Amino acid sequence: MIKIKHVFIVALFSIAFYACGDDNDSNAVEVFDHEAQALIDKDSLASFFTKHYYDTTSGLVKPLIAGETALSNDSNLKSQEVTEQEVDYTFYYYKIGNEGSDPDAKGNPSVVDSVYAKYNGVRIVDTDSISTSFDSNTSWFTLDGVIRGWSYSFPNFKGGENVSSSTPGEPINFINGGKGILFIPSGLGYRNVGTPTGSIPGNANLIFYIELWDIVANTDHDQDGIPSIEEDLDGDGDPRNDDTDENFVANYVDADDDGDGKLTKDEDRNGDGDPRNDFNDPDNPTLPDYLNPNIFG
């Protein structure tokens, strides 16, 4: 599955350098302008929406025809603004059907939860045409390990209810899960780099048809007893940038958050399985032990 990328790989390629043709300085470089590209992508998507509609019969986005409602005027198309690496982006999602209508259906995942989903990806070649599928699959993945457009988009959908038969060999079956379409600007996809195979070129806006079948709420990446989403200490919605001991390993994947040599899960003096409510430093009564290197368990 080509979408699964570690966040550090994304960060590594977030800025691309190109040699300039200045005869006076052969070593000069030009930094790619992601902010300008974000504006270009926003305009391109806006134009695309005026020329396409959602076809309920095929379940696909198609060129606009007489009698149909353009996506730009379709109330089911929603937008959301996010800031990634100091650049403002707008992505879009289109909900299909009545997700989560059953009381047994799962809720919405967080930006770092594990999800089980079916997807099919195409790219917007220009404002008038759509490519053939570049990737289609059904799998488990964690939302901190995929393109950022997915990390932000999937939490807008709910997981479904597993109604699979208990008979061995029968296929897994889910109902009432979130179903929709994601419209991802290049800056929240593969940016100006694209994919190594070339199936997705740089600065490509993407479309994904998705079905969210299942989620693992409160995924705990480092198994320290604290859900990964709860290790977002600064409250900005992104646990990836919280690193208490400054060892370049974010808390949600760091088994020893304060770097005192004792695992976070073991800094649970009251033994209730939750290190977040143990406070044993009289000089810092509001700082939990697992974030306090002066308290060893």
Score class of each variant (00 low, 15 high):
Asp55Gly: 14
Ser58Cys: 04
Gly59Gln: 15
Leu60Phe: 04
Val61Pro: 05
Lys62Met: 02
Lys62Leu: 02
Leu64Ile: 04
Ile65Tyr: 08
Glu68Asp: 06
Leu71Ala: 08
Ser72Pro: 00
Asn73Asp: 13
Asp74Ala: 05
Asn76Gly: 14
Leu77Gln: 10
Leu77Pro: 00
Leu77Phe: 06
Lys78Pro: 00
Lys78Gln: 15
Ser79Glu: 05
Glu81Asn: 14
Glu84Gln: 10
Glu86Ser: 12
Tyr89His: 09
Thr90Ile: 14
Thr90Lys: 13
Thr90Ala: 08
Thr90Phe: 11
Tyr93Gly: 09
Tyr93Val: 04
Tyr94Phe: 13
Tyr94Pro: 00
Glu99Phe: 04
Gly100Ala: 14
Ser101Trp: 07
Asp102Ala: 15
Pro103Asp: 08
Ala105His: 02
Gly107Arg: 01
Pro109Val: 03
Val112Asn: 06
Asp113Gln: 15
Asp113Leu: 02
Asp113Thr: 05
Ala117Phe: 15
Lys118Thr: 12
Tyr119Pro: 00
Asn120Ala: 11
Asn120Cys: 07
Ile124Thr: 02
Ile124Ser: 11
Val125Ala: 11
Val125Met: 12
Asp126Lys: 00
Asp126Arg: 14
Thr127Trp: 08
Thr127Ala: 15
Asp128Lys: 04
Asp128Ser: 12
Asp128Glu: 14
Ser129Asp: 07
Ile130Arg: 12
Thr132Asp: 14
Thr132Phe: 05
Ser133Thr: 15
Phe134Leu: 04
Asp135His: 10
Asp135Gln: 07
Ser136Pro: 10
Ser136Tyr: 05
Thr138Val: 12
Ser139Cys: 12
Ser139Phe: 08
Gly145Asn: 08
Val146Asp: 13
Ser151Pro: 00
Ser153Asp: 08
Phe154Gly: 08
Phe154Ser: 05
Phe157Val: 06
Lys158Trp: 00
Gly159Trp: 00
Gly160Trp: 01
Glu161Leu: 15
Ser166Ile: 07
Thr167Ile: 10
Pro168Gly: 09
Pro168Trp: 11
Gly169Pro: 09
Glu170Gly: 04
Ile172Phe: 06
Phe174Asn: 03
Gly178Met: 04
Lys179Leu: 11
Lys179Pro: 04
Lys179Asn: 14
Ile181Thr: 03
Phe183Val: 09
Ile184Lys: 07
Ile184Asn: 07
Gly187Phe: 12
Asn192His: 11
Val193Trp: 09
Val193Thr: 15
Thr195His: 13
Thr195Leu: 14
Thr197Ser: 15
Gly198Gln: 07
